[in-house]
Computed example of a mutant assay.
Amino acid sequence: MSDVYFGTDLFSELDRLQRQMSSLFGGFPSSLRSSRFGTFPQINIGTTDDSIEIVAFAPGVDPSKLEISVDKGLLSIAGQRTAHEEPSTEGVRQYAQERFNGAFRRVIELPQQADPDKVLARYVDGCLLVSVGKREASRPRAITVQ
């Protein structure tokens, strides 16, 4: 038992502080590992027994111009999205644009069990699908009791 006594539960106080900070900055990700709000491309990361699966939502990107690399446990996705050519309409001035155009780079920290020699990438329907295999030693295995 500790000699230090807090009048309240320390963890509930930290939770309360985090909620206050979240409401102060409204709408931003709550995780320290989350990227800044509005980054492109948005990504989903998941795992299976055999691999780490990354989906980058990148519609309008030329797949031949995507650069994917793995170095020191970091997966890097870089490329450029060009502006969509709109039919010329005389007298129309644009005052808002929500679609991202320009160069981008996303860097994702891979877990230790990722094998950089087993990376597969494909581009399907505006999504970049990257599969990173896991090292053989990190895969779950059943142990038989004798």
Rank of each mutant, 00 (worst) to 15 (best):
S30W: 04
R16W: 01
I43L: 14
S51A: 15
E86Y: 11
E109L: 11
Y95P: 00
L10Q: 08
A121V: 02
F100W: 01
R33W: 05
F11H: 12
R139Y: 01
R16G: 12
F25A: 10
F11Q: 12
T89N: 11
S22Q: 15
V70M: 05
R139C: 00
K72Y: 00
V132S: 08
V107Y: 00
P29N: 14
Q80W: 01
F25Y: 14
G79E: 04
S64N: 08
D9A: 06
R105A: 09
Y95D: 07
S69Y: 00
G126E: 00
D3K: 15
G79S: 02
S88I: 05
L110T: 04
G7P: 02
V145C: 10
V107Q: 15
Q97Y: 02
C127W: 01
K134Q: 10
F25L: 09
D115E: 14
L17P: 02
E67Q: 06
N44Y: 01
Q80S: 09
V92T: 06
D3W: 04
Q97E: 11
E53S: 03
G91Y: 03
E85S: 10
I108Y: 13
A114R: 01
D125P: 00
G60H: 04
R122L: 11
C127F: 03
D15I: 03
F6N: 12
L66H: 00
S35P: 05
E136S: 10
T144C: 04
G91H: 07
T47D: 13
G26N: 15
P116A: 07
S51Q: 05
I77T: 01
F25H: 10
S131V: 09
Q42S: 15
I52K: 02
T39A: 13
G46M: 07
Q18E: 15
G133R: 03
A137W: 06
S12W: 04
R36A: 08
S76Q: 07
Q94P: 00
Q20L: 14
A103K: 14
V107D: 14
N44M: 07
Q20W: 05
R33K: 13
